[in-house]
């Protein structure tokens, strides 16, 4: 059946446009606010959707009056390290649970999944004690070590589903071909699971990039803060919200995540839908 233009317009494009506007509005608002001078921000008579006198003042405040770049670096450092640790651990865990049929492999998988369901609000107090005992208080390493507590369960769970979709025969064949279990893992399983590994990695990266609670609880020195904490603690002074620099910071901080997503979006989708398509 050939749909008429108007039918397609109303059934497809209109909902799509609404959805796009809904999704992009926060970004527009951040962008918009970041370019506004202070007096325009608080002037209720002006049209809020439009910038009358664009300025880079907010950008300047953010970059030179705070140590925003340092926070960016910290966030990158923590996100990349904790993602790497989590991926490494989850790859091995998921493979073991899925392929080495030991007696408790089923319950272990389930337990790991339940681990993901425990909210950080419950965990951060005992974790804080541990961090303190390890003398990692106020250090970025405290975050590098605590983020995997929620990243590993999620990644393991995602990768388990992915490993399941790889035909067992392929591994058996490789073993008969003369490869050891580790070789099989490295040469056959990992290459076939790249989409799954990508999506787990992107997810882990995003989660650690945005993480707030642990970073707030474990870090107090300004130099060691991550972006989400730095912005909120340094640009909200007392009850004064420095909206301009705040929004500029939020916008800049969302750029890396957006880039990661847009570069790997195809792998990401393939990873979530799983399966090797032949």
């Amino acid at each position: 059946m050939i749909e008429s233009f108007w039918s397609k317009f109303f059934r497809f494009y209109v909902p799509l446009i609404i959805f796009v506007i809904f999704l992009l509005f926060p970004f527009y608002w951040m962008f918009n606010t970041s370019l506004k001078p202070m007096k325009e921000l608080y002037n209720l008579k002006l049209n809020p959707f439009y910038v009358h006198q664009p300025t880079l003042e907010n950008m300047k405040t953010l970059l030179f009056d705070t140590i925003f770049l340092r926070w960016m670096y910290n966030t990158f450092f923590v996100a990349i390290l904790s993602t790497a640790i989590s991926l490494g651990a989850s790859l091995l865990a998921a493979y073991a649970i899925q392929r080495l049929k030991f007696k408790t492999s089923g319950p272990t998988g389930l337990a790991i999944f339940f681990g993901y369901l425990i909210p950080p609000t419950i965990l951060f107090i005992p974790l804080a004690t541990i961090i303190f005992d390890l003398r990692l208080w106020d250090s970025l390493w405290s975050l590098v070590l605590t983020y995997p507590t929620f990243l590993i369960p999620f990644c393991t769970w995602l990768l388990m589903g992915y490993f399941k979709s790889i035909p067992k025969e392929m591994e058996e064949c490789a073993m008969i071909d003369g490869a050891s279990r580790l070789r099989v893992f490295w040469r056959i399983v990992i290459p076939l699971c790249l989409p799954g590994i990508f999506s787990a990695g992107i997810f882990a990266f995003t989660l650690s990039w945005n993480e707030f609670l642990y970073a707030l609880a474990f870090i107090s020195t300004t130099e060691s803060k991550t972006v989400p904490i730095g912005l909120v603690t340094e640009l909200v002074r007392g009850d004064v919200y420095h909206w301009g620099p705040l929004m500029t910071g939020a916008l800049l901080a969302s750029v890396p995540v957006a880039l990661v997503y847009s570069f790997f979006v195809e792998h990401y989708v393939a990873g979530l839908t799983g399966a090797l398509k032949e």
């Binding site: 035909p167 025969e169 392929m170 058996e172 064949c173 073993m175 008969i176 071909d177 003369g178 050891s180």
Partner: peptide, 14 residues
């Protein structure tokens, strides 16, 4: 398996 000096063709070819 890797040291048995055999080769195998699987049903789904693998």
């Amino acid at each position: 398996a890797k040291d048995r000096d055999i080769a195998m063709v699987f049903q789904n070819y693998a």
